[in-house]
Nucleic acid binder design. Sequence first.
DNA 1: GCATAGTTCAAACGGACGTTTGAATGAGAG
DNA 2: CTCTCATTCAAACGTCCGTTTGAACTATGC
Lengths: 217, 217
Amino acid sequence: MPERAVAGGKENSVEIPVESTRERLLNIAEQRFGEGGYEGTSLRAITVAAAANIAAVNYHFGSKEALLRAAVARAMAPVNTERRRRLDQLEAKGDPAAEQLIRAFIEPGLDLVLRRGERGPVVARFIGRVAFDPSQRIRELYAAESDPVEARYLAALQAALPRSTPEAVAFGYVNMLGLLALHQSQALGLEVGEDPAKLAENLIAFLVAAFDRGLRD
Amino acid sequence: MPERAVAGGKENSVEIPVESTRERLLNIAEQRFGEGGYEGTSLRAITVAAAANIAAVNYHFGSKEALLRAAVARAMAPVNTERRRRLDQLEAKGDPAAEQLIRAFIEPGLDLVLRRGERGPVVARFIGRVAFDPSQRIRELYAAESDPVEARYLAALQAALPRSTPEAVAFGYVNMLGLLALHQSQALGLEVGEDPAKLAENLIAFLVAAFDRGLRD
DNA sequence: GCATAGTTCAAACGGACGTTTGAATGAGAG
DNA sequence: CTCTCATTCAAACGTCCGTTTGAACTATGC
């Protein structure tokens, strides 16, 4: 029988919160879906890597797509929370400038997710890949998790750029989403580089300049 | 037996160049791979839509991946040719400005492929999706078809922006590739809009502005 | 006519897929 | 202890996958 450590052991050992099967499945799913995409990753590959029985997926989540949905929701939650927090804070101080809005949108997507520990890049790549998945059904799954807060940013950007047409702002906004997902997914062989914060600064500067002039009358 | 029109009939009928099985397979493969991705599209779906026997794929191409490779090569060829032609022309006139280089890179990718007839958007989406495929092996397949001419553009951009660091130019270059593929693939629900040429102009203006200032010392 | 090379065909190959089943195992409550 | 309920397990389900086979068809040259 496979040994399994138990949470909250009574011995003098340090309390190590061992991942549940459900958590291991979500962690491995993030990694594998981010590497091979949804269609290119089998449940067997996930369950083997997670040291779980293949039936565990349908027991805990119900289906392969439901596993993906749960992984997307878990990965997006802290990003959305941080974006909401920053937007609330900016709007409380008055009308935020475009750069502040861009920063408040990009940094939770790159910084938050790239910084912390080993799993950061895995989560970032997972999010970026799901956002660009070939299947529209998968992309909608991502959109459903991020739409509400994203819509708030779009509206705030419109207000911050009154001299730009709504079409121009929307165009820049789409490009912002795309470039963020691009750098999250590391799809074009771009190395993360020394400092992820520097990547965020570069991307923000790139977008700010483009928003200022990247529109056509 | 399935009727099949023959090219160059001797009767008084108009000469209709009927697509060969090989061409039909490439056309349908472009469409389906562009919709569902490589892993998400089966050879059976392709051969049924192309009214071909499933063994035709392995007869004409050798394997599923070889079919994809042939489709990528065929789709990229005119884009690469046009890019080379424009770059030759620009360099013959002297040192080209960054905007000219960006335009010469973007327009063959968007204009050329979006304009002509019904198949334009299909080819564009196919190229964009392959460039962003979850599998690195597929992405490398795209890169192998476009690397030579792309490298020339990167070098020319470096020369046109002597005040920018090579890292900054490379960063902008990656973003240019990503945004082009994004709009080609129409992945984020962006409607092509009234005039594809307008999309190209908007994207070029967006990139020019970002290249001018989107760098960090 | 016959021979030949190119192409298409139905059928089958072994294997991998997502999902389901029903029994075995585990910890906690009474 | 016994009962209960959540979880894990090996095994199998039917389906679809990419690929292969060998025969049948087609057109062209002799």
